[in-house]
Amino acid sequence: MQSYWFGDVDNERCSPFDGDVNSYVDRIRSISASMDAFIPLDWKQSVLCGACRDRADYIARLQAVCIAAAERSIREQYSGKDAELLQMVRTLDEVDTVINLLSERLADWYITRHPMFSRKYRRTPAHVLVKTVREKSKGALGRVAGEIEHLSDTRTALAKEVTARANDVMPNTSALIGGLVAARLLSHAGGLLELSRLPASAIQVIGARTALFAHVKTKSPPPKHGIIFQHRRVHNAPKEVRGKVARVLAGKLAIAARLDYFRGVAVPEFLNPAQERIDAAGKERES
């Protein structure tokens, strides 16, 4: 027997499927064909079946069902809790880029108004400089500085939301590496399912693409870490064991991502020994 969208065909006998568009969608999502014993669909059978009147009716009905099915699939893909987190963390990273770009430009502009100004030998953080510029400058320059400050506030609020959402969506990964870096891993992988399918070795070098390809092409040393370097466990580790910490951490992250995807709740039996193991790696000396 062959199941097609409009009905089941067995030799010459055909039983049409009956129902509204939604039940047709349920049907086409549940049936599949074996490609080995595949008998291609013949639209005329749908007319013999009584499912459709003619060719135009056949195409119109099939199109309506397929559009409804695609709409439902899209809705499902976006309903995953990770879909919004992905957009949030990408927005956050882009806001950062914009703030940096505007601050640099602002400093250049300010310097033309104050030719004796230099940032050398002063420990003026960027946000303090922006504040000074806002207070001391008239017109558009001051207003741009104000906008940068405003955007920085938004950035702070967004970062908090990203962390909170990551703790909720990926509790195990976030517990090991912090919500923000966990969300960035998610963003690079493209989703929680995709992250859970990555091997530890790939997680270790996510975000170090240039170095990785340089290694592949020119046999330069392989990258030890990608964005997991942003976590204090990696960048605070003594240099000689940093690669080791990154490797152990990535191994535990790969497990954590799978727990997050398949269970969705924090698993203390895994987390406690994993934390200990990662901390231990930072204290060992490579022998």
Partner: peptide, 17 residues
Amino acid sequence: IVPIMADAARPEYYAPL
């Protein structure tokens, strides 16, 4: 145009369409 949301590497899922 009949739009089909499926993986082209797995034709068995859209063969009935």
